[in-house]
């Protein structure tokens, strides 16, 4: 017996009518789950705490203003600013690292945020120790160095190596990584624009569309040779989808125009079909490559009499 889905006529995602057209490209396959290829954001609690640990320095700096100690204030508020900057760099670095981990083909970040965060934090501690807490300068430098070392050890270094680029032409895979980065940005823009529509059903459809787009990305990442054929998809279609969504969101949030909504839904349907078609075609090409490979090898075995 199949489990029955919970929900009534007023539930946010009403049960599909039996036999109604589905958003799966019409081939009977179930629609992609919305969270496919998306990861939950990892939260590193210690990294979050780096935003709060420098707070006493802020209070101390404000206290120095009351005391009239200009150098002390400079050390404490300067140290506080540097430590907050370091905390922000660290959180950006962790985000970049997550994105790097989630992808099969990735380039190292252009700016090593976590390493710079460690160094900036060390300078902040040294400044706060020597000017603020009144320690001798060498002691401040030692504390700063230990803080940098602990930061780098505790929060790690940035990913420094190219990933998934072994055995493939480096130039080619670099192009793939760049193209996917651009396309991911377009998908993020698409999702942002869909948030402004203010209609849960449509937002869910756009999210499914984004999941389908990411499926295509994974296919391209797996086989960089697909890039030339997927390039149009990665730029033109996604950009069009994003711009159309932004315009529709503006319009629909103003006047709830049902005509525009119908047209937009038709566009989403077309895009869904085209995205899944695209993915299938790219995979089909891999399949025919494999067939050719097998054919050639078997023929060769035949010719050399290794096979009965």
């Amino acid at each position: 017996m199949a489990a029955e889905r919970f929900g009534g006529p007023y539930s946010p995602d009403p049960r599909p009518e039996p036999g109604a057209g589905q958003a799966d490209g019409g081939d009977g396959a179930p629609p992609l789950p919305r969270f496919r290829n998306r990861r939950a954001t990892r939260v590193n609690i210690l990294a979050r705490l780096t935003f709060f640990a420098p707070l006493p320095l802020l209070l101390a700096g404000l206290g120095e203003i009351g005391q009239g100690d200009a150098m002390g204030m400079l050390g404490e508020l300067g140290g506080f600013a540097l430590l907050i900057l370091a905390a922000w760099l660290l959180s950006e670095g962790l985000k970049a690292e997550d994105a790097y981990d989630a992808r099969k083909v990735a380039r190292p970040p252009a700016f090593p945020r976590k390493i710079v965060a460690g160094v900036v934090a060390g300078i902040g501690v040294a400044l706060a120790c020597s000017l603020g807490a009144g320690l001798p300068i060498p002691a401040g430098i030692v504390f700063g160095a230990v803080a940098t070392a602990a930061h780098l050890l505790g929060f790690g270094l940035d990913p420094m190596r190219k990933k998934g680029l072994e055995g493939v032409d480096e130039f080619q895979s670099d192009r793939v990584a760049r193209a996917i980065e651009g396309a991911e940005a377009l998908v993020a823009g698409l999702l942002d624009a869909s948030q402004r529509i203010g209609d849960r059903g449509l937002e869910a459809r756009v999210e499914r569309l984004a999941a389908q787009a990411r499926e295509v990305f994974r296919v391209v990442e797996d086989d960089p040779r697909d890039l030339p054929r997927a390039r149009k998809f990665l730029t033109v279609y996604l950009m069009g989808a994003r711009d159309a969504t932004a315009k529709f969101a503006d319009l629909y949030s103003r006047n709830r125009d049902t005509g525009a909504r119908t047209e937009y839904e038709a566009l989403l349907g077309d895009l869904e079909t085209s995205f899944s078609q695209h993915r299938k075609e790219l995979l089909l090409d891999d399949r025919s490559d494999l067939d050719v490979e097998i054919e050639v090898l078997r023929e060769r075995l035949n010719r050399e009499g290794l096979k009965a």
Binding site: P54, G132, H151
Partner: peptide, 30 residues
Amino acid sequence: MSGPALKGIAAFVFLAIVFLTGLSAFGAGL
């Protein structure tokens, strides 16, 4: 000791240095 534990301790040491620096600067200012 395992890697994650070591990393956690190092991160904790970093936070402690920052926090205590702030406290001692606060104390010195009083």
